[in-house]
């Protein structure tokens, strides 16, 4: 990270009240995000990767205060987001925006494109009407749509085009931070790369910082220089995305990468894949020690007793795993060689 941070999150916790279990049961809390800390520099992208139940989307929503934060600090530049009052928060929204996963449901069907793009300007800025119109036209063209589409309704557009509209809406006020929640996963493959390239171009032009929430490590690898991998509400590995993608230091990261099938049948037959057994444990009662131990193919005795330490990894970043200090004592090296030796192995 080169310059002053745009977003700094420290020890973020988010929990939901879940209804009592059973008759007259005690009210319980579901800890969706547990002690997450991260930092994004101005104009930088950080990828937040994980599967469903990892808490990655919840973290994204909590950072924007679209859901309540249980504890921890969130700072946008010098401004406290986690502790902002309602009115402070509404003013803050000018500086931080969001793009949602499904462009079919994130655009109000009863508003025209012009109305959708105009709304942020009306709320936050005092701009004369004809100037607003010109800004909308310019923004539409910068996301690759004709300015003449402004009078149309969202249902007239394809998924990729709608996502362009959603991006345009988020960028109208040149925010400092945009949280992208799975921005391409609902789109057709041929359209996904259009949107990824568009996002990169927009970031180059505007200098907006992105928090990219995604389940696909290869998308994150392409879009962001740094990545944080989440599992069951916690960050298990961080680092430069090239290092994390090519030389994972946490077994979950390694499993996540190897689970994505590669479009080459010969390689699919050849590679050693880590196939995770079991299901994601309930976040209401996470496993003791390391949260990943119930599905980890390399589980050791210590894993259930102690929470794993954060170990500095060769090539940058941190990994929370006992393998670095115990067992094979990897000491911050990648898991690749270790996995090759082990001849993995599906744990049924």
């Amino acid at each position: 990270m080169s310059n002053k941070p745009c977003l700094r999150v420290e020890n973020l916790h988010v929990s939901y009240d879940v209804g009592s279990t059973g008759f007259l049961g005690k009210r319980r809390k579901l800890h969706a995000v547990n002690d997450v800390s991260l930092e994004i520099g101005a104009g930088e992208t950080l990828g937040l990767v994980g599967e469903s139940g990892s808490g990655k989307s919840t973290a994204g929503l909590a950072i924007l205060r679209l859901i309540d934060v249980a504890s921890g600090t969130v700072r946008l530049g010098e401004t406290d987001v986690a502790g902002a009052t309602r009115s402070e928060l509404r003013a803050l929204r000018r500086r931080m925006q969001m793009v949602f996963q499904d462009p079919y449901s994130s655009l109000n069907p009863s508003m025209t494109i012009a109305q959708l793009l105009e709304e942020p300007l009306i709320i936050h800025a005092d701009i004369p009407k004809d100037e607003r119109k010109a800004m909308i036209g310019r923004m539409l063209e910068s996301v690759g749509l004709h300015a003449g589409y402004a009078a149309r309704y969202p249902h007239e557009f394809s998924g990729g085009q709608r996502q362009r509209i959603a991006i345009a809406r988020a960028m109208m006020l040149h925010p400092e931070l945009v949280v992208l929640d799975e921005p391409v996963s609902a789109l057709d493959v041929s359209t996904q790369s259009q949107i990824m390239n568009l996002l990169k171009k927009i970031q180059g032009d505007s200098g907006t910082a992105f928090l990219l929430v995604a389940h696909d490590l290869s998308v994150v690898r392409l879009m962001s220089p740094r990545v944080a991998v989440m599992y069951l509400g916690e960050i298990v590995e961080t680092g430069p995305s090239g290092r994390v993608y090519d030389q994972p230091a946490h077994p979950y990261t390694a499993a996540l990468i190897s689970a994505v099938p590669f479009p080459d049948p010969e390689r699919q037959r050849r590679v050693n894949r880590i196939i995770l057994g079991g299901d994601l444990p309930s976040p209401m009662s996470p496993p003791s020690g390391c949260r990943f131990r119930t599905r980890c193919p390399f589980v050791m005795d210590i894993c259930s007793k102690e929470a794993p330490p954060k170990v500095a990894v060769e090539g940058g970043g941190l990994a929370s795993c006992h393998l670095h200090a115990h067992g094979p004592k990897l000491g911050g090296r990648s898991l690749n060689d270790f996995i090759r030796d082990k001849q993995i192995v599906s744990a049924a």
């Binding site: 996904q192 790369s193 990824m196 392409l222 479009p263």
Partner: peptide, 17 residues
């Protein structure tokens, strides 16, 4: 257009326009 292929080839994914 697939991200993994683009990574393998070392460039941005090539979008189908």
């Amino acid at each position: 257009a697939m991200p993994q292929v683009a990574l393998e080839r070392g460039h941005d994914p090539i979008a189908i326009p």
